[in-house]
Nucleic acid binder design. Structure first.
Length: 474
RNA sequence: GGCGCAGUACCCAAGCGGGAAGGGAGAGGUCUGCAAAACCUUCAUGAGUCGGUUCGACUCCGACCUGCGCCUCCA
């Protein structure tokens, strides 16, 4: 097996992946803030994390994948001036924050499941780990990295010499208040809150007692506390969107390493954004498309997965309906090819494939190992399915093996007739198909074509083959 | 103002200091009563622009142009 190489944001270079413990990987992927539906752009990192985990497991690692659910503390502004997103949404809806969280968490997992994303080993909620956060903040405080102001506890970034290393930030170059009002309580604009007590939502359910007063945690602390809880004080990989590099992850590193005095995470993996037209897809501005809206338009969620895999995760990707159509066409063609192969016989045992197929598989694995180069991997998949030299059982074996990492649903490919179709509709179609067969036999091609047209009008596509006429719903 | 990233065919999108992957769309063909699928052929003498380094650059360096992101929140 080749060595996995990952582009590490910390250092900005491709590096050989070497785990802390041989054969094992601790991986923390930033999860959702469950105050609204996830949009298509939000889904990109979860597909990436899934691809990363699948690749690691394929390469023989035992992976512990931890994902957080942010259900408290995520402010709409990183100061006491901001509002907690969860509380705000709960007030708007007249629901409790827990009801809001439960609703959108369920929606989130419904979407990721449809995208073929495996459930993480551990899913942890911020509200259930406040004690861990308080314990961690105490350690940070004991080491002298904090100060109190205006009733809140802040992290003093000037006490942490390597602050901003991940994001290549220099403290004196940051333009304070470039786009937002400065929190007057902060000594330095880059300082961030570990614990809030002065809350305009102080009468809400989401407050906890702490050594600094009754209040709630800052947003960044949850990831540090929960990752350490499940993966230890040092672990291998932390992933999230590029937007988190300058603030969220930078602050996580500062507070985590301040607390332990040790290097926290070895490899940082960040996905680029999905853009909609020229703008990023965002809840605040631009387009907001959910996975469900794609399903409503007739796309398979895995079409969207294919679309994502067509670009490298570190490239900005522009969403367009044309591109999504292209992905759907490509994936359908893939499924057709796999079906055609499956109808010729069973897949060969992967261990017994010949040299040509073996070489294809190795190229595929090499592409995945080279910083998860899914576009190249897809090209290898196409190559395997198009190569006239490969015996059908071997081509099928390759496709299924590759799909174990890509997750495009090739193994579950079914002829449309086998899919769930209303029995009455099916009977009607079968009747016309039989009638057309009779017409064809009688050389009544006008009648045969009329039936084809009639069915086509209902979205039924006919395909004449050696074994008779197959049909499917378009 | 500072920092980071990108500009490849009709669209999406890779790799690479020395033959420009792959997909979609398009065109022609084989096959088919018709159609679909499949298969074959075709589709960037050129990679934002201009310089430089080099025997050789799309690939390195510089400038410029254009676009995007970050320095609130965001995946």
């Amino acid at each position: 097996m080749p060595t996995l190489r990952l582009f590490n944001t910390l250092g900005r270079q491709l590096q050989d992946f070497v785990p802390l413990v041989p054969g094992k990987v601790g991986f923390y992927g930033c999860g959702p803030t469950v105050y609204d539906y996830a949009h298509l752009g939000n889904m990109r990192p979860y597909v990436l994390h899934d691809i990363l985990v699948r690749s690691l497991r394929y390469l023989g690692y035992e992976v512990t994948h931890v994902m957080n659910i942010t259900d408290v503390g995520h402010l709409s502004g990183d100061s006491d001036l901001g509002e907690d997103k969860m509380l705000k949404r709960a007030e708007e809806r007249g629901k409790s924050v827990y009801e809001i969280a439960e609703f959108y968490t369920a929606a989130f997992f419904r979407d990721t499941e449809r995208l073929g994303v495996a459930r993480p080993s551990v899913v942890c909620k911020a509200t259930e780990h406040v004690a861990d956060m308080i314990a961690l903040i105490k350690r940070i405080e004991a080491k002298g990295y904090t100060y109190s102001a205006g009733g809140n506890l802040y992290f003093d970034v000037t006490k942490f010499p390597s602050y901003g290393e991940l994001a290549l930030l220099k403290l004196d170059e940051l333009k304070a208040g470039a786009r937002v009002e400065v929190d007057p309580n902060k000594r330095n604009p880059a300082d961030f809150a570990l614990w809030f007590t002065k809350s305009k939502f102080g009468n809400q359910a989401m407050v906890w007692d702490s050594p600094w007063g009754r209040g709630y945690p800052g947003w960044h602390i949850e990831c540090s506390a929960m990752s350490m809880r499940y993966l230890g004080e040092q672990f291998d990989i932390h992933a999230g969107g590029v937007d988190h590099i300058p603030i969220h992850h930078t602050n996580e590193i500062a507070q985590s390493e301040a607390a332990t005095g040790k290097k926290w995470v070895n490899y940082w993996v960040h996905n680029e954004f999905l853009n909609f037209g020229k703008l990023k897809m965002a809840k605040s501005s631009g387009e907001f498309l959910t996975l469900q809206s794609l399903v409503d338009k007739g796309y398979d969620p895995l079409d969207y997965r294919y679309f994502l895999l067509g670009a490298h995760y570190r490239s900005q990707l522009a969403f367009s309906w044309e591109s999504l159509d292209s992905a759907r066409s490509a994936r359908r063609s893939l499924l057709d090819r796999v079906l055609a192969l499956a109808e010729k016989g069973h897949a060969a045992p992967i261990a017994s494939i010949g040299p040509a197929a073996r070489a294809r598989l190795e190229s595929f694995v090499a592409a995945m190992a080279e910083d998860l180069a899914t576009p190249r991997a897809l090209a290898e998949l196409w190559g395997a399915l198009r190569d006239p030299e490969l015996p059908a059982p071997e081509a099928l074996a390759l496709a299924l093996e590759m799909d174990g990492i890509l997750g495009l649903g090739l193994a579950g490919a079914r002829r449309a007739e086998a899919a769930a179709v209303d029995p009455e509709l099916a009977a009607w179609i079968e009747g016309l198909v039989a009638e057309r067969a009779a017409a064809k036999k009688a050389k009544d091609f006008a009648r045969a074509d009329a039936i084809r047209a009639e069915l086509a009008a209902k979205g039924v596509v006919l395909a004449d083959g050696a074994g008779g006429t197959a049909w499917k719903l378009a």
